[in-house]
Structures are given as structure tokens and as C-alpha cells.
């Protein structure tokens, strides 16, 4: 008994201190939304290069906090960090992949891409001012659609998330009332509705609850075969959520390397741009050149080889010229 115990003790201590880092490891933490695509990339990257990228999805807020405290090699956030804050904390930031938030509804008889909404009507629905589907403000956008006079159930996220940050930023830009009463953030105090945990929770509720509306990441809408709506973008077009419209948003947006790409991809100017898109960002500690080079090498590899993987998981790869802008940014900071 005693010898066994001693053996265990020696074994664990040995494991703890000697077997460290047999392979090269990059540690990252942050946003949950890009977790599947980062881990898929990491899986392939390890197979081809032997380098491990351990990404922990602890949430965007956690990602910013961890990199600020320099406890990880990179942080990840769905919400862009403003340039002033980056300078203050001595951080670098660049986009890695694009996602989009789509509105999903459950109205019997209404199919995907049939219901048209604009920012004003979405805002009023989530404020609880439009309460029924046959409200004149919805009807006027959909003259040909038969809408029932049923009560709308709003479904939102109940946990903190980058998805919510993107969506509430959109709502804050859509109407002044939202900005004033609720505001934008990773978690907000919702005026109406029921809350689901995670994208899947919201998707679940919308699928089950008739006459409901919710917002989820595009990937979840697609995988769960939910009914999505069209949205009117600032160019006046009703667009359908798809790879093309997300990429149009990313391509038309003015990502400025001088501002560390700080940009909300909300209401991007492109003709076919989906109005509620968002890039998810990587944060680096400026002075940690060595580990930054490792991280950048990984993302450069992903930019070159990861597009198919991303698309299969329903994420939108960055458009090529944005990738090149990011590479130039790396070069400029001496880590590429």
C-alpha cells in the first residue's frame, strides 16, 4: 500500500514537471463562437506540423482578460477591442474569421427567405412594441405574405456572448430607443422574451415555440434548418444570409490596420452585404514577439489551407484582400 502510494506520488510529480511541453504548444483562450473552427484548424495543424494549439473557449470577456494578464499566447474576442484600449494594454488585434447573426422565426406557413424585415421593425419587436405578427409595420414590408394575428414570442440569449454583442450593437444603431433603454453588450437586460443558453438553446426554443423569433449565429440556423428571414440592408436591398452576403459585408467594410481592424461589421455598405455580420478577433501581446510569431504562423497556415474546413463548419473565411491586409499588419509589427 505504502509503496504504491509513493509510486503514484513520484509519478504525478514527475508528470507535472518533466513531461512538460514535449511538443510545441500555443495556448489561446476566448470567444466560444469560433471554438469549433479553431479546434478543427488546430487538429489539422497538429497533424501537418506537430505544433499544438490549445484553444479554450471561456468567452470573449475572459479572452480579453487573459491576454491582458499575459497568461495565454493569444486571446480571442467576438467583439472588437477599441484601439485606445489596445494601446493602453499594449495589444495587437486582427480578424480571423467572419460570422453573421441571422434572425430565425417559427411561423407556420412561412418558409426560409420569405419574411422580410428591416432594422426598425426588428428593433420594435425586440423592444416589445410590436407584439403581433400582423402588425402594420411588418405587413407593409410583406404585402403578399399572409401573417397570423398571433402574439410574438421573443427568444434571446441568456448567457453572455459575442453574438449578443453583435446583435445588440445592430439594434442600438437601428433605433435610438434601444440605445437609450437597453444598450449594447455581451449580456443585456432584455425588455421582453425568454432566454436560451447558448446558440443551441435559442435555436431549440425557436424550433419548438410557435410564433417566436430569435437570433443565432448563421451556422446554427443552417445546421438546425431553422426558418431565417431576409433583412433590408442600408443600400435598400433585402438580402438573404449566405456565404456570399457575409463576404460582401466583409469585403465592402473598411477594415483599417491603423486602428487594429477595429470595426463592427454592422450595416456594411456593400450592395449585397448582410447587415448583421461580425468578424471574430485574435489579440496578441505586443512585446511577446516569439510566441506571436508562432501564433501568426498558425493563422497564416489557416488562411492558406483552412477555408474549406471553415466553410464546412459554416463559418465565412476572410476575403482574400482582407487576408493580405492582415499579413501586411503582421509584417509591419515584425511578427511575420
Amino acid at each position: 500500500m505504502k509503496t504504491v502510494l509513493r509510486l503514484f506520488l513520484i509519478l504525478t510529480i514527475a508528470l507535472s514537471f518533466t513531461a512538460v511541453q514535449a511538443a510545441e504548444t500555443i495556448n489561446g483562450a476566448g470567444a466560444t463562437f469560433p471554438y469549433p473552427v479553431y479546434s478543427a484548424w488546430a487538429y489539422q495543424y497538429q497533424k501537418t506540423t506537430g505544433v499544438r494549439l490549445n484553444y479554450q473557449s471561456i468567452g470573449s470577456g475572459g479572452g480579453v482578460r487573459q491576454i491582458t494578464n499575459r497568461t495565454v499566447d493569444f486571446g480571442a474576442s467576438d467583439a472588437p477591442v477599441p484601439p485606445e484600449k489596445l494601446t493602453r494594454k499594449d495589444l495587437l488585434q486582427f480578424p480571423a474569421v467572419i460570422g453573421g447573426v441571422v434572425l430565425v422565426v417559427n411561423i407556420p406557413g412561412v418558409k426560409s427567405g420569405q419574411l422580410k424585415l428591416d432594422s426598425e421593425s426588428v428593433c420594435r419587436i425586440f423592444l416589445g412594441e410590436i407584439t403581433e405578427w400582423n402588425d402594420s409595420r411588418i405587413k407593409s414590408l410583406n404585402p403578399s405574405l399572409k401573417l397570423p394575428g398571433r402574439k410574438i414570442t421573443v427568444v434571446h440569449r441568456s448567457d453572455g456572448s459575442g453574438t449578443t454583442a453583435i446583435f445588440t450593437t445592430y439594434l442600438s444603431k437601428a433605433c435610438a430607443d434601444w440605445k437609450e433603454k437597453v444598450g449594447a453588450g455581451k449580456a443585456v437586460k432584455w425588455p421582453v422574451g425568454i432566454g436560451g443558453k447558448g446558440n443551441e438553446g435559442v435555436a431549440n426554443y425557436v424550433r419548438r415555440v410557435k410564433y417566436s423569433i430569435g437570433y443565432v449565429e448563421f451556422a446554427y440556423a443552417k445546421q438546425n434548418k431553422l426558418t431565417y428571414t431576409l433583412l433590408k440592408n442600408p443600400s435598400g436591398n433585402f438580402v438573404k444570409p449566405s456565404f456570399e452576403t457575409f463576404q460582401a459585408a466583409a469585403a465592402s467594410a473598411d477594415f483599417d490596420p491603423q486602428k487594429h481592424f477595429y470595426l463592427w461589421l454592422i450595416n456594411a455598405p456593400g450592395k449585397n452585404a448582410w447587415p448583421i455580420s461580425g468578424a471574430t478577433f485574435i489579440l496578441l501581446a505586443r512585446e511577446k514577439k516569439k510566441s506571436n510569431i508562432k501564433t501568426v504562423r498558425f493563422f497564416d497556415w489557416a488562411f492558406k489551407n483552412g477555408d474549406e474546413t471553415a466553410k464546412r463548419l459554416v463559418y465565412v473565411p476572410l476575403p482574400d484582400d482582407l487576408k493580405n491586409k492582415v499579413r501586411a499588419y503582421w509584417k509591419q509589427n515584425g511578427i511575420y
Partner: peptide, 20 residues
């Protein structure tokens, strides 16, 4: 038949997400 939160559930869901 409504969703709610308990102290424990709030902790499990929001502890690592808390940003401030």
C-alpha cells in the same frame, strides 16, 4: 413553465464569461 435562474446555475453559466 418559464425559464429562471438559480444561484448555482448563474455561477456555472457566467463565472468564466464575466468580463468586468
Amino acid at each position: 413553465l418559464d425559464a429562471a435562474a438559480t444561484i448555482t446555475v448563474t455561477l456555472a453559466n457566467e463565472f468564466t464569461e464575466a468580463d468586468t
